[in-house]
Design a protein around this nucleic acid. Structure first.
Length: 272
DNA sequence: ATGCGGACCTGTTAGC
DNA sequence: TGCTAACAGGTCCGCA
């Protein structure tokens, strides 16, 4: 579920309910997520505080308060919703951040690759954050940057753009999509791609993510209240999940390979 | 420094 | 129909 557009959509969806709201309790039914949930520290330092901002860095959601920051990552299967705090918990409802107004932020994560962490450090210095590359929508993320950084790199370009040290937020689905739109073969060595082609790739990464966020916006309501599932606009995907089907541009059968054990779909005629 | 492969864990689907 | 294996949107870590 969560690539950057889903995380950003979640951020926007929950922000109005969480911002300026006072945390009254933490309910943790399962501490064993990606890392153990630091229940004590959160209870001691966040409960009683007001959330001043709901931010995001890469795919980490950041609930900021005067005493520190709660980091929430949705992993592969997590989702976060605003509910009434008295709503009974179901399977995989691991953590509730309960608020003074009777609502709660509830983390559901079947696969438990997500995480809930607490830090009092400056967030940009945090161990999981400090090494991260630029945000894809930042001006800093441009063709010059990618071109320079990639010189000498032998890794496939798909692996390169999915590396969070290079740029955050480009997950498997959107890496496949952006490379297709840019006409670049996913296996091509990152260091051998011209600046001109990086101009196109950067543009496609930004546009693909932006458009997905826009579409996510239509399902914002689903992040609050009931148990609506955010629509995933699969019909928009040009290559991901379409191996064996015809290329939308030329009709050639789309190929599937594995790169770094991730499913990679491309058109051998449109992507060079 | 770079680039691999393994690890975390459960649910769903493909294949026999 | 039932069992098993493979695979899934992430990303950190340790090793070569």
């Amino acid at each position: 579920m969560p690539e950057l557009p889903e995380v950003e959509t979640t951020r926007r969806g929950v922000e109005p309910y969480v911002r300026n709201n006072k945390v009254s309790a933490l309910v943790c039914r399962q501490r064993q997520l990606r890392w153990p949930v630091p229940v004590r520290a959160i209870e001691k330092q966040l409960v009683g505080q007001t959330v001043s901002n709901v931010g995001r860095r890469g795919k980490y959601l950041l609930l900021e308060s005067d005493t520190g920051t709660l980091l929430v990552h949705l992993g592969m299967s997590g989702n976060l919703r605003v509910i009434s705090a008295d709503q009974p918990a179901g399977d995989h409802d691991h953590v509730d951040i309960v608020f003074a107004d009777g609502r709660a932020l509830r983390l559901n994560d079947p696969r438990r690759f997500g995480s809930v962490l607490w830090t009092t450090d400056d967030i940009s210095a945090h161990k999981l954050i400090h090494h991260l590359g630029p945000e894809p929508f930042d001006e800093q993320f441009n063709a010059d940057y990618l071109h320079k950084l990639s010189r000498g790199r032998k890794a496939p370009v798909k692996t390169f753009v999915m590396d969070s040290k290079v740029v955050v937020g480009v997950g498997n689905i959107y890496a496949n999509e952006a490379l297709f739109k840019a006409g670049i073969h996913p296996k091509r060595a990152a260091g051998k791609i011209s600046k001109q082609r990086y101009v196109v790739l950067v543009k496609e990464i930004k546009e693909t993510l932006e458009q997905a966020i826009k579409q996510g916006g239509t399902t914002l309501k689903d992040f609050v209240g009931g148990d609506g599932k955010p629509g995933y606009f699969k019909q928009e995907l040009l290559v991901y999940g379409r191996a064996g089907e015809p290329c939308v541009t030329c009709g050639t059968t789309l190929k599937e390979i594995r790169l770094g054990q991730r499913s990679t779909v491309y058109c051998k005629d449109c992507q060079k």
